[in-house]
């Protein structure tokens, strides 16, 4: 019998930027149907991990592998990873002046659809508009959003919603949400989390990166990992997040130091 291949797996990942190592041996296995939360204090390497997974060209990988559907994606450019069904919701999405959300999304959705489902699976303009309208409604976004320039002049909350809108349109199988909760008020957070929950299905997996436990009240993780100093220091069930909220990161640091000594 063939060996089981997890949807997503990180093996002994060492990576950094400009010669400075930030990730010092990350290991993680994520199966379809699972939601994992990655928590940790500022500077622990969470966002670096998100960028390395997505393939940001400024980050260097020194050692290890990232396997998506069994394939090491570290050799692939970011667009190929996206076309295989990977997605990153950015913490700080970049503005692209003059490019409307709709024009951008149509090109993106169709290049991903063609790669994943076949050349003839691109959406017609009419199908595209229908899908876009449906997803906008789901995220309680105004239709005029589609004709605005990508992330230009968006409020913090609009940016985050726009990221989830893109995720909804691209239908990834593995998505990383990088601090999607930051800068959101409670109502916006709820809307975004509702959207994510509706998108989630047993055939996909999510890695939710967050500093605070708050978003995890809405997007319930199956597993929680805490990153310290470029490594996953501790893993557990959803109760770990609550414990963290209560006791703070110093508590994990103390525990980790104890375990390491």
């Amino acid at each position: 019998m063939a060996e089981h291949t997890p949807l997503f797996m990180i093996e002994n990942l060492h990576a950094g930027i400009e010669g400075k190592e930030i990730l010092r041996g990350v290991n993680l296995v994520i199966e379809r149907g699972e939601i994992h939360a990655l928590m940790g204090p500022n500077g622990s390497g969470k966002s670096t991990l998100a960028y390395v997974i997505a393939g940001h060209p400024n980050y260097e990988v020194y050692e290890g592998r990232i396997l998506y559907k069994g394939e090491n994606v570290l050799e692939l450019p970011p667009d190929e990873r996206a076309r295989m069904g990977m997605f990153l919701a950015f913490q700080y999405p970049t503005a692209i002046p003059g490019v409307t959300m709709a024009n951008f999304l149509r090109l993106a959705v169709n290049s991903v659809r063609k790669a994943r489902y076949g050349e003839d699976k691109a959406l017609t303009p009419r199908e595209f508009r229908r899908l876009l309208r449906e997803k906008l409604e789901m995220l309680r976004m105004d239709e005029t959003f589609a004709s605005r320039y990508l992330n230009e002049g968006f409020s913090g909350g609009e940016k985050k919603r726009a990221e989830i809108l893109q995720m909804a349109m691209l239908e990834p199988e593995f998505a990383v949400l990088d601090e999607t909760d930051s800068g959101l008020d409670i109502d916006a957070l709820r809307t975004v989390a509702d959207g994510v929950n509706q998108l989630f299905n047993p055939n996909m997996a999510l890695l939710v990166i967050t500093h605070y436990q708050r978003i995890l009240n809405y997007i319930r993780p199956h597993y929680v990992h805490v990153m310290l100093d470029g490594k996953i220091a501790i893993s557990g069930g959803p109760e770990l997040a609550e414990e963290l909220e209560e006791k703070g990161y110093d508590w994990v640091k103390a525990q980790y130091a104890e375990a390491a000594s």
Binding site: G55, P57, I96, N103, F104, L107
Partner: peptide
């Protein structure tokens, strides 16, 4: 990088910008 992470090739991303 942002546009590429959505599935656009580098050339597509460049011409979109």
């Amino acid at each position: 990088f942002y546009l590429q992470s959505r599935g656009l090739t580098e050339a597509e991303a460049m011409s979109m910008i």
